[in-house]
Simulated assay, not measured.
Amino acid sequence: MASSNKSVLFVCLGNICRSPIAEAVFRKLATERGVVDQWRIDSAATSTYEIGSSPDYRGQACMRKHGITMSHIARQVTNDDFASFEHILCMDESNLRDLNRRASKAKNCRSKVDLLGSYDPHKQLIIEDPYYGGDEDFETVYQQCVRCCKAFLEKNS
């Protein structure tokens, strides 16, 4: 299979908390499995709120605690993303509504838009935004992302 055939874009509201965590977790899992070169991995926002920002410092601290490096600058989902990414995985119903609305207007949409939580073996469909919470909320997001990304990777390997 050609490397460009496997691609995933993780999406949340601002692209500074949940989606960059999911992106970094998935990249680490794919690296550990020896398949990272077969994937195009990125994350983006549905909103314009945080464009150009680094991931939230609490998310970065959580990831460091788990030995995962993050290097991402927030960006918004583009129409091209719907044509170039095979999978667009988002965090909650609001993200899903926004993405489905955008996908219906995008030319050459080939993306399968879904909730990342649909892969959770614990059946927690929604990955709640930790922005207004504390360190424990970022840890919860991390744990959910690990479970979901593992299941997604297994299904798509």
Rank of each mutant, 00 (worst) to 15 (best):
Q76V: 06
S71Q: 15
R97V: 09
C90H: 03
H87I: 01
G67I: 07
C62Q: 12
M70S: 08
L96I: 02
F85M: 12
G59F: 05
I68P: 02
G59W: 08
H66M: 09
F82I: 08
F85E: 02
S84H: 05
A83Q: 09
C62I: 10
F82D: 03
T78G: 06
D92G: 04
H66L: 06
S71V: 14
C62A: 13
M70L: 14
F85C: 05
T78F: 07
Q60M: 12
K65S: 11
I88G: 01
K65E: 14
T69E: 15
C62Y: 08
G67V: 12
N100R: 11
R75L: 08
I73V: 14
R97P: 00
H66P: 05
M70C: 04
I88C: 01
T69V: 13
D81E: 03
E86S: 07
D92P: 00
T78K: 11
L99G: 00
C90G: 00
I68A: 07
S71M: 14
D92I: 02
L96D: 01
C90P: 02
F82Q: 04
D98G: 11
N100V: 08
C62T: 15
F82Y: 03
L96E: 07
A61G: 14
R75K: 15
A74Q: 08
N95Q: 02
N79G: 06
A83L: 02
R75G: 10
N79E: 15
H72A: 14
K65V: 09
N100Y: 02
I68H: 06
V77Y: 00
M91F: 10
L99R: 10
T69H: 15
D98N: 13
N95Y: 00
S71D: 15
H87C: 07
D98Y: 03
C62V: 14
A83F: 02
G67M: 08
H66Q: 10
I73D: 06
R97L: 04
Q76N: 11
A61C: 12
A74L: 07
R75H: 10
N95H: 05
Q60F: 05
H72W: 05
E93Q: 10
D81H: 01
C62N: 12
R75Q: 15
T78R: 13
Q60I: 12
G59L: 08
R64Q: 13
I88L: 00
E86A: 12
N79F: 13
G59N: 10
H72Q: 14
S84N: 13
M70Q: 07
D81P: 06
